[in-house]
Design a binder for these strands. Sequence first.
DNA 1: AAGGCGGGGCT
DNA 2: AGCCCAGCCTT
Length: 345
Amino acid sequence: MTEKSFAQKVLAWYEQHGRKHLPWQQDITPYKVWVSEIMLQQTQVSTVINYFSRFMEALPTIKSLAEAPQDEVLHLWTGLGYYTRARNLQKTAQIIQHEYQGNFPNTLEALIKLPGVGRSTAGAILSLSMNQRAAILDGNVKRVLCRYFAIEGYPGDAKVSNKLWQLAEDLTPYERVNHYTQAMMDIGATVCTRSKPVCLICPVQTDCQARKYASITDYPHPKPKKELPKKQTVMPLFKCQNSVLLYQRPNIGLWAGLWSLPELGSYDEIEKYAQQQGLQMIKLKPLEKLIHTFSHFQLTIEPYLIEVIPAINEIAESKKIWYNLIEPQRLGLAAPVKKLLTKVI
DNA sequence: AAGGCGGGGCT
DNA sequence: AGCCCAGCCTT
């Protein structure tokens, strides 16, 4: 006896555990599958059940949907979100009504052209309602495949997505595609869940690569964090005895109202700045660079510790202070500034 | 508080 | 092609 194929295992699982009593699985039609798929794109099954039933009661046919007032369609959609989908739903119903004599097209190419129907939804309609061999790749299936094959990379990335589609199509059986498709979605939704997957009851656990390496929840890889824009600044710590020169930031913008070190564009500006402030530089020592991450950018701080002698007739300014490191004044400091100050005591 | 979801629309 | 968005829900 030869080893069962992936699809055979999935189909065997479907017999026992697959969902067969959902409202859109009764007296299956392309219309029901389509409406349910659009709803399921954004909402979980338990919620969709009620919306779906109400929707079908009010608009039981493509024709009724095509001819309904838009307000009626949106009313039935209220609470589901993504309202352009409700509008697309009606647009597509009108196209089917007028250009396809009320019958769903039965090819991938034609289905994909319908507004709101992409490759995955088209695959679902073909396989679930027409038992045509077509693959789907919704979030559930993506997760199952990413884990089973330990797919590296973010599934939203085009290269990774192409790979997943290829695998999804290769695995799709020639018989009982409808059951296979339903089973894949069910496994993703009930077994191979995002967190706490129940591998022990999974029909394909033995060959699952992610499970093999005990790294199930490492897959699918998360969306890579966008690299934050990088900015640089030079911060001189002008030090005289136990005090460092700080200045107060304006009341708007970054670090509003907090006290900070001077922020200079480059090392070359230090001397000029010191001169302006009437500071005589005695000794200069570069400190270790400091990276500070904001929500929207990353700031690399190049600090320099500079011993200075202030001018005799130094002018006091309200926005300027000699901050005593031994007996610190009580005032607000920008976080990285606070950190820098602890290093020079 | 962040991230996922399938497709559309913009660059 | 790659990026961002929608609106609600889960984690």
